[in-house]
Every structure is written in structure tokens, then in C-alpha cells.
Write a protein that binds this DNA or RNA. Structure first.
Lengths: 184, 184
DNA sequence: AACAAGTAGTAGGGCTTCCGACTAATGGAC
DNA sequence: GTCCATTAGTCGGAAGCCCTACTACTTGTT
């Protein structure tokens, strides 16, 4: 017997059996309803927003990773490559990469380790500061960055699953959220 | 010398030095401009949307984790606790947890392992299917779920960093995105 | 009844992120 | 000119997520 339809473990005495409107098929809408029913109404919209963000991120990331996979790079490493590509010289200090990508320094160490092992970047000494290292794009790193961008543009970015209006609003709303969090 | 201001490694011949308008302080707006300048205009809005999503998720998750940390649970484990709490019996099969949370079965195994080790849930045999396991909330698990929800509601959900209007729009837009991805 | 196909859950491994601790090197204070 | 605080980067460890492979158990077919 499918447990989903078995009232022994779930579903007994739920909204449906009590004659109230059925929970939506959307798990987030369902959670929001639970929030309201438990008297947490004021927090319900925020909960729904944060939860939606988590799930949408999950979906977007998996599409991106699937697109990049054939090229042997992950999104984290792709971001490093693009940052270098946009820097004219094709090279940036580790520290600057971390601050631009807003990740922990150890995450950059990790990403650069793998990019270097794949021959896409090289670590060289910083001429003025012997503590620092400069990460430089190799020709092969440039090629991968170009291919990856072409793939992402055509397979994900031009069809993000939203119409133009929604895309615009999403960027604006998240922009305000990032700004209020002190992101920029 | 601060490398950020040193034109040797970055910044030389950029938009600014060429007299064009300076890149915005917002790294995503900067990336979008790069996209346009490289002739990837049609993909620029989608790129900005996906990137914003990634960063906003990062911000939201870190706020949530910081709030939960004192209680000894993570967001992933909190979601499992709440799912159980909302299920009247306080118990659900592993499989159902995975499908409701839309994560891989092994992620549930991992989360339940830790929750069980902390005494917040218990694994019991499924009476009708000896392959399956039922995860049940313990009294202490219930208590932690309640405390965690109170903390999240007051510290994050009632002030998500957006006004009511933006929260509503965000949920709606992401809802359409999730729906178009076949999420529900 | 017996065998094949499908399902539940777990082990192992890869990848990301963060944190805390540690090493070197820089640089300001006295 | 030392000495100490700060800074750049790395190492080790914890957690999350996914994937593949594998075991045990069900279920449908012949």
C-alpha cells in the first residue's frame, strides 16, 4: 500500500477530512497555511518568501550545473573563470576574487586548486606582496570560459522559466533585498 | 599597495579609465553590463536573475543558519522536524520526507541520522513494508521544533529585508518559476 | 509457485560552503 | 630599528546536496 494514501501515518484528521479546503499542491502554499493555522500569521509571508528562495535556488542551480557538467566545471569555478576573464589582464589576486564573489577565502582556495589542477588557471607570485598570489587564466581556461558562457546563455539564461516582466521584477526585488542586507 | 587600486592587475583600460560610465557597485549590475558589452544582451536579464537568486539565497540561508545555530539544528534538519510536526501523528516514512522536501533520499538519510543522534527523532519499522522506515518525532524533537520556529519567526521571517509588497511579489514570481520548472 | 522488475534505504565518494587554527609576510608604533 | 597587530592564503573538519552502486524486500508476470 502506498503510504501517501494511507491515513495511518499522515492525512488523518487533516483539513481535507475535516471538510476544510484542501491544501494546495504547492508545498510552500501548504506550509504557509500551516503557519497561519498555528497563529504565526505575521511570519507567514516571510516564511513563504525565504522558503521560495531556497527552492528556486535549488532549481536554478541544478539547471546550471547540468549545463556546465559536460565542460567539466561547476558553477563556483565558472564564476572564478568569468571574474578573471572580465579583468582584462586575465589575472586577479586570491583576495580580490573572494571579495568580489563574496565567499570565504577558503572557498577560493578550493576552487582555484581544482581549476589549477585542470590547467585552466595558474597561481603566480604577487610581485609586491609575498603573502599574496595572483591567479591567471590560461588559454585553455579562456576557451572553457567562452564555451561555458555560450552554453549557459543558450540553455539557461535566455529561458530562465519566467517572462521578461517577471525577470525584471525578480532582479529588482532581490536587488533591494541584497541591498538591505548590506550587499552593496 | 592595495591591489584593488593598482591598475597593474585590474582596472587598467576599464570603462572608467576610458571615460565611459563607471560600473555599478553592485557586482551583479556590473556582470550584466559585461554581458551586454560582450554581445550577450539577450541573455543578460536571465543571467542577472539567476545570479541574484544565488546571492539572495546565500544571504537568506546564512541568516537562517545563524538563528538556528544556538538550538543545535540546521535548516535542513529543521525542515524535517517541521514536516513531522505538521503530520499529526508526528511520523512519516523516509520516502515521503524526501519527496515533500524535494531532496535526494540520501540527504534524508543524512539529516535523520543526525536528528536521531541528537534524540530529536526515532526510526521505527514500517508495519506493512519491511523495506520502509517511519521517522517519529520525540518529545524533545517537538520542543526543539517549537523553539526553532519561534526564533525564525521573530528573527528572520517577520523582517525578511523587504516590504510587504516586495515579499508578495517575490513569492508570486518565484511561484511561477517553480511551476514552470514542474515543481508542483 | 518462481522469477523478473521495481522500490526503500544506506554506504561511499565528489563538490560546495563555512569556521577555526596556523604560517608567512607586511607595516605601523614606539 | 624592533615588536606586535593585521593580513593573505592554506589546512583540517563539519555539513549540505547529489550521484552511483548495493542490499533487502515487494510486487507483478508467467
Amino acid at each position: 500500500m502506498d503510504v501517501i494514501t494511507n491515513p495511518t501515518y499522515d492525512g488523518a484528521m487533516t483539513a481535507e477530512t475535516l471538510g476544510r479546503p484542501a491544501l494546495s499542491a504547492d508545498p510552500i502554499a501548504a506550509a504557509r497555511q500551516q503557519w497561519v493555522e498555528h497563529g504565526w500569521g505575521p511570519a507567514a509571508p516571510g516564511m513563504a518568501a525565504i522558503t521560495s528562495l531556497m527552492r528556486a535556488h535549488q532549481i536554478a542551480l541544478s539547471r546550471v550545473e547540468a549545463t556546465l557538467k559536460p565542460l567539466g566545471v561547476t558553477f563556483a569555478r565558472y564564476e572564478v573563470l568569468m571574474l578573471l576573464l572580465f579583468s582584462q589582464r586575465g589575472s586577479l589576486p586570491m583576495k580580490l576574487i573572494a571579495s568580489r564573489l563574496q565567499v570565504h577565502p577558503t572557498s577560493v582556495t578550493n576552487a582555484v586548486d581544482r581549476l589549477e589542477a585542470a590547467g585552466l588557471v595558474a597561481r603566480t607570485a604577487h610581485p609586491d606582496d609575498r603573502r599574496a598570489l595572483i591567479v591567471t587564466l590560461t588559454p585553455s581556461g579562456r576557451a572553457v570560459a567562452a564555451k561555458a558562457t555560450a552554453a549557459l546563455n543558450s540553455e539557461v539564461f535566455v529561458q530562465p522559466g519566467l517572462d521578461e516582466q517577471d525577470v525584471r521584477e525578480l532582479v529588482e526585488v532581490l536587488g533591494r533585498m541584497r541591498q538591505s542586507a548590506g550587499d552593496f
